[in-house]
Amino acid sequence: MKTIYSVFQVNTYIHNMFHEDYLLSDVSVSGEISNLKFHTSGHIYFTLKDDKSAISCAIFRQSAQKLNIALKDGDKIVASGSISNYVPNGSVTFNVTKVEYEGVGDLTKKFEELKKRLAEQGLFDKEFKKPIPKFPKTIGIVTAPTGAAIRDIISVSKRRNPYISLILFPALVQGEGAKESIVKGIETLEKANVDVIIVGRGGGSLEDLWAFNEEEVAYAIFQCPIPIISAVGHEIDFTISDFTADLRAATPSAAAELAVPDIRQTIEDINDLKKSLDKDFERVLKNKLHKLAVYEAKLNALSPVNKLNKQKLIADSYNNKLDLLMKKIIKEKKAELETLSERLKGVSPLERLKAGMAYVTDSSGKRVVGVEGLLTNDKVKLTMKDGYAFAIVEKVVKEG
């Protein structure tokens, strides 16, 4: 009959195989650090990977204290130690006792190169950063529809303002198609005319967050006319999206706090302003009333009614004098006009016509003042006091 083993027996057997294997008991492995975590116990946990595979690693406190380099995500290292499995859950772990620095990992190098190139193109410049609206009505969110990130954003947003409107674009935030999904989410929410957009996800390794380091995502964020808050990973995580966005939040929860004003604080601020305005109004009113009382006392002391009556008498006096003066001027001007009228009569052509004289014009209506220019048989017009006469020149005699 075939022997049946328990899970514990199988894991123990595998553990012994690892322990007895000469190669795996002292092995050196080259790879790139990812998903680095420093535990409060003093242990260090990370993933060592290359372009084809990855292995979980642990540096226990005693070995961690002897490290002479500071580990960080993206470092390329040579780790030495032994490989074993943990019997309770069967997980395989590389127990690292020694670390040598080999250089910058491929992803980290790619990240720095893209960061430098986009910075030179001006995508990170402050002059292009759009201000986040103080009182948005609608917030767009580009993230996974499940997970801690969206739950945190909704929870914080509704706690700060229960009336805020949230529109979620359910995006892929990791793996194949993630960058295209994020770009589409930004473009879709732009068309929805939201007030601000939060783009982000929860924490993870450099590989997990890589979609937010893609050039296409960076350009979509930069070209979007709506302000964007980047909220990718944890506070220690930085992505290209963080540098391109109008504002970087350490976490999705922090992004919600930056995007959504606390309505209770807003109401409190409004009440404080109202109290301040009431006090200012009361102070100004009191000051104006005091000045009014002072002016009223001064007016009473100066008897403005008497002054007005006196000024009225003076005005009436000037008015009478003006009337007399005007009558005198009119009389004088009338006399001058009569004198000029008599003088005009003396030189008036009409008066001369009455005396028997005539006004002579030629056939074109031009005045004739002498015989020069007149010819025999010319027609002339004689204007007299009571009408006209037309004549023909029979003879022209010039005297003198």
Results as ranks from 00 to 15, higher is better:
L71T: 05
I236W: 02
F135G: 01
G233F: 10
K366Y: 10
K72H: 13
L350F: 11
F238C: 00
K291H: 12
A79K: 01
I77S: 02
L209G: 08
L277K: 15
E394M: 11
L322H: 03
V142H: 09
R352P: 00
T188K: 10
S82A: 11
I69M: 09
S82D: 03
P227Q: 08
H19W: 12
K327N: 11
S348N: 14
E296I: 04
E216L: 06
I55V: 15
N68I: 15
S53F: 01
I197S: 10
V183C: 05
E102T: 11
L67K: 03
D269L: 10
E20R: 15
L48K: 02
V393W: 06
D106P: 04
T339E: 12
G185F: 02
S41D: 05
V96Q: 01
V396T: 14
P170V: 03
S157T: 08
G365V: 09
A389W: 08
E399R: 14
K275W: 09
Q121I: 05
F60M: 07
Y295C: 04
L258D: 03
L36R: 02
L337Y: 04
I141V: 14
H39I: 00
G177R: 03
R117T: 13
E102R: 15
R367V: 15
P304R: 01
Y45F: 07
E338D: 13
I14W: 04
Q311N: 15
I59A: 08
P131I: 05
S241R: 01
K52R: 15
D262T: 04
G373P: 04
D316K: 14
K275G: 10
S53P: 03
K179M: 07
V156G: 05
A211C: 05
L172V: 14
F390R: 09
D242N: 07
A358W: 08
E120A: 13
L337C: 06
L189H: 07
I4A: 04
A178C: 09
S41C: 02
V7W: 02
I392C: 02
N89W: 01
L324E: 10
K334S: 14
R343Q: 14
L374S: 03
P170R: 05
V194Y: 09
P225W: 09
V156T: 13
L123T: 06
E332I: 02
E32I: 08
A231F: 10
Q311T: 11
T47D: 12
T188F: 12
D125Y: 04
K327Y: 01
